[in-house]
Amino acid sequence: MNSLSQTLNSSIARKVVMALTGLFLAAFLAEHLYGNLLLYYNDNGAAFNEYSHTMVHNILIRMVEVFLFAAILLHVAQSIAITRKNNAARPVKYQVRKDGETSNWFSRNMGITGSVIFFFLVVHLRTFFVPYRITGIGEDGSLALVVKEAFANGWYSSFYVAASLILGFHLNHGFQSAFQTLGMNNKQYAGLIRNTGTVFAVVMGAGFASFPIIFYFNLLGR
């Protein structure tokens, strides 16, 4: 009846791509946060540097990294396509809308939070990934030191905190949304999924926001 390409271009299939890439990225975030937490070891960044080093030299991780970038691009490209189509579905807009009474702002504005996160990602890569992997602080240089230096800047740190919180909100909707899209939701589990998503989002948001705060105010006292 439907050709495969039709099926894969359907509004549900597109959302499934969003959900799968989203969940994959969320899993990466969790892993990333775990790695970053090593910064809190009182070992002058050794564990963290060691971890970063392994990440770069493990062939498997390098392969996953390719998927990671692909997922990011797919997630972004698909969201742009979906947003365009969705906007086109209502050519004449309402004069008055009280969306706030029926849905949550963050659920409606994943595009905005997503864009902020994308910008954040670019900045983030520019600060850490590019020097570490491309232009080079050298493989033996301490990435932990780079982190510390970066978060000495107040503006930079504030941006980081804000972006991390926005990431949290993005995840809060995205998590349950992904399960809904994948059909893994019903009245019985809805609460569980929502709560798990919220816990996850809070941990991620707060987790990533903690680094600039702690380093800027030097709360570890080192």
Binding site: T7, S10, S11, K15, N87, A88, T102, S103, R108, S177
Partner: peptide
């Protein structure tokens, strides 16, 4: 398959799980 396909052909947007439909 048939119903979703027709839904898309008619030009309706996709679901982004905001829940506004359920609320209204």
């Amino acid at each position: 398959q048939a119903m979703v396909r027709q839904h898309d052909l008619e030009g309706f947007g996709g679901c982004t799980n905001t829940g506004a439909c359920e609320a209204e």
